[in-house]
Simulated assay, not measured.
Amino acid sequence: MSELPDRRLLLVHAHPDDETINNGATMARYVAEGAHVTLVTCTLGEEGEVLVPDLAHLAADQTDQLGPHRIGELADAMAELGVTDHRFLGGQGKYRDTGMIYDDAGNAAVPPQTRPDSFWQADLLAAANDLVPVIREIRPQVLVTYDEFGNYGHPDHVKAHRVATYAAALAASRSYREDLGPAWDVAKIYWTAMAESALRTSLRKLRDSGDTTTFEGLDPDGPLGPFVTPDRFIDCVVPAAGYVDRKMNAMKAHATQITVDGPFFALSNNNGNEIWGDEAYRLVKGTAAPGPDGLEHDLFAGL
């Protein structure tokens, strides 16, 4: 597809705001460098908690209008990052936010009852078939999504991982669904990650500053949950110097979900590059091309 830039990045996320929290600086960087960045969001985030009191009526148990509102928040966030190609899997509202509960271990989990139109209940092949044509149209060299646990257990994150993984495999097969476009094999697939050392360092700085409530219960020197990735599994850290402000502005655009006095901004004070700026990834398909420090610093390294 000659009209597309040479470098093409596809990100598959579960809800509006996930993309900014996990990859906002990365997205802003590659847009600025001229790459084509495509975001596919799987749900409208209808079941999210509303943090703005004046908008509490939008919640799922009231007027149930949070989803349409979050379409606008996502558009504003993408404008901050410079991303012009953002889509919803299968179209706006096809798959509904499943919601979540917390299990006994403190991780997100599937609620005891889920709606038939929830993303969690969606047929895996049918959902993958909504992503295959996007892959074959954009022909990305790099795909970014979650790990098999969805980073913290949310059922929609887990499902997004499964859909992205399956769709990438199907898209590469020339004998699969010719009607969905010519086959395309994604060269490198990454999972988003929270690097253990970076989180521990930031937690220590918070505690040293006298903040004992942000991320209460997380001991900088104790065991951390499965949302943290040991450094030995980190393959790429995208340095985001110059793009942290754009990421923070995009996070502010997701106002119903992220508050400026919440943990994201607490961790950004004075050390934003360490925790919310620099973004870590695990390479799960393709060949790593690390630099002298043993890490990649470009998702397209080696391509």
Rank of each mutant, 00 (worst) to 15 (best):
H254D: 02
P5I: 14
D208M: 05
V142K: 07
P16C: 05
D278Q: 02
Y281T: 10
R204K: 12
D219A: 01
P5N: 12
M1D: 12
P53S: 06
N269Q: 10
V260K: 00
D18H: 10
R87A: 04
A187W: 12
V260D: 08
A266H: 01
H69S: 10
T26F: 00
D261L: 04
R87F: 06
D54Y: 13
M248N: 09
L124I: 06
M78C: 07
H13L: 09
L124E: 14
T43W: 03
L206K: 01
T84C: 08
R115H: 12
K159L: 00
D208A: 13
V158N: 10
T214K: 06
Y190Q: 09
A59Q: 08
P292E: 12
T84Y: 09
D278I: 05
A289R: 08
P263E: 11
L81K: 05
R177D: 11
A105I: 01
E279W: 05
G34K: 11
Y95R: 15
A187Y: 13
P111L: 04
G24Q: 03
K252D: 08
R136E: 02
W184I: 08
A168E: 06
I71F: 07
S2Q: 10
L58E: 09
H57N: 11
G72V: 05
D245S: 07
W191P: 03
V83H: 05
D61L: 08
G24C: 01
Y176D: 10
E274H: 07
H297K: 03
H254N: 09
E73V: 05
F300C: 04
D76K: 15
T256R: 07
L180H: 00
A77R: 13
